[in-house]
Design a protein around this nucleic acid. Structure first.
Length: 419
DNA sequence: TGACGTCAAGATCCG
DNA sequence: CGGATCTTGACGTCA
């Protein structure tokens, strides 16, 4: 089983993807952006390898306007060397990659122009994967599209237009149930007709269920029959409902208890699980740590080093509790650990706690900061305490110092990430 | 015609 | 002028 995350890595330096407005998309600008984004991708891959994350979705925005005629760069040739370097890292690590064109890539549209654009867009995605030397088990996930008042005809068009796709797309294409139009039973009918794999998305299914009522594992088992050996391990999407947003909105983080209940229901089924969640890699590591056979406490200690200041800012009591929890070096209290962290994040920060943590972090710079930097920090902190500056400003200053003085321990801290 | 979703770019405002 | 905050963009469907 692999567990992974989608598109972007939070809290890791130099992994941000860049883009530009269509009107500014000159050859020069695009070349610069592609180069930058490939560097960012390499950093994300490095991070995944370091953190033993073996499932990752590459963002469609890797190549800005990758399927728009405005981008006339033969980027797969121009950046061949960079692609090959990344390709080697992926291959060596055994990481499984996917891509997922968004809701605007519609293969079953009644409008021929939109279908043509969808085909071009799928070719773009396949070209990225080909450039990375990825085999057919690295999938491109697509939704079926619109209904246009006639689902039967719309499905027929999907089946027909699928035949127009290139081989490099076809060998990777898998289809997924969505949150408004096509239920898992619809998608299974299409998947069986085309003999292509079906990805089950639990939250889409919850929001857009089919008439037949069954537990998730029922649908997962049926989907499994659509995965052939050349497709690799069966893959699903897993996400949780955001408590105060509209149905289908992804949660900020994966609640570990709810995830583990789902995991228990899987009862040993060997799947790859792509998480769709705002805190991305953070939840991936959480879920990996709670399901791994390698129950070594240093995994949790390493996590703690990243979470601790974010926890301390919200709840000194939880902070102490977690420290105590990690005292026994022969234990592996993974669920308790993440439950305490999640509980602390439910709590509001107070000015006292925020000042305390800010001063604590300043301690890393006490002996190395310039007098002017010290003066500025103390001034900011004073302003914050008087209500004249936001804590955001204080944190921003600390982050600047962290980067300037290359404080490795702090560079990885979620103190700057979790808001 | 605007909402939907997503994120950063770009625009604008503020001190 | 730099930093913070607000608006726009790019895609297609549907109410």
């Amino acid at each position: 089983m692999r567990i992974g995350y989608a598109c972007l890595t939070v809290g890791v330096l130099n992994t941000e993807l860049k883009t530009c407005l269509l009107k500014n998309a000159s050859e020069e600008k695009l070349t610069e952006l592609i180069k930058h984004n490939l560097n960012a991708l390499e950093k994300m891959i490095d991070y995944n390898i370091e953190n033993q994350i073996e499932l990752f979705r590459i963002s469609s925005s890797l190549i800005p306007f990758g399927s728009n005629p405005v981008n006339r760069i033969a980027w797969w040739e121009v950046f061949e060397k960079q692609f090959r370097k990344i390709s080697k890292k992926i291959a060596k690590s055994g990481m499984r990659i996917s891509m997922h064109p968004g809701q605007y890539t519609v293969l079953n549209s009644a409008d021929e122009n939109i279908v043509a654009n969808a085909i071009t867009d799928l070719d773009y995605h396949a070209c990225v994967m080909d450039s990375l030397g990825l085999g057919p088990e690295n999938k491109i996930i697509l939704h079926i599209g619109g209904i246009y008042n006639d689902k039967k005809q719309a499905i027929k068009r999907f089946l027909k237009n699928y035949q127009r796709l290139s081989e490099t797309v076809k060998k990777r294409l898998v289809i997924e149930n969505d949150d408004k139009s096509y239920t898992i039973s619809d998608v299974l009918i299409i998947g069986k007709a085309l003999d292509i794999p079906v990805v089950f998305d639990n939250l889409h299914h919850q929001v857009n269920p089919c008439d037949e009522k069954h537990p998730d594992t029922y649908w997962i088992d049926i989907c499994k029959t659509t995965w052939k050996s050349q497709d690799g391990k069966q893959k699903i999407h897993y996400s949780q409902q955001h408590p105060d947003k509209k149905p289908g909105s992804h949660s900020k983080t994966i609640g570990i208890n709810e995830f583990m209940a789902f995991y228990q229901d899987l009862d040993g089924r060997d799947l790859d699980i792509m998480l769709e969640v705002k805190d991305k890699n953070l939840s991936a590591i959480k879920c990996i740590n709670c399901t791994t056979a390698k129950k070594e406490i240093n995994r949790l200690e390493h996590e703690w080093s990243k979470y601790k200041y974010a926890v301390l800012e919200r709840s000194p009591l939880d902070y102490l509790e977690i420290r105590k929890l990690l005292n026994n070096k022969d234990s592996y209290p993974c669920m308790e650990f993440y439950n305490l962290i999640e509980a602390s994040f439910q709590k509001e920060t107070t000015m006292g706690n925020s000042v305390n943590v800010a001063q604590h972090i300043w301690g890393y710079f006490r002996t190395i900061a310039l007098p002017s930097e010290k003066k500025y920090f103390l001034k900011l902190l004073d302003q914050y305490e008087k209500g004249e500056a936001s804590i955001k400003k204080v944190k921003k200053n600390l982050w600047k110092m962290t980067v300037k003085y290359e404080q490795t321990y702090l560079l990885d801290s979620y103190y700057y990430v979790i808001v």
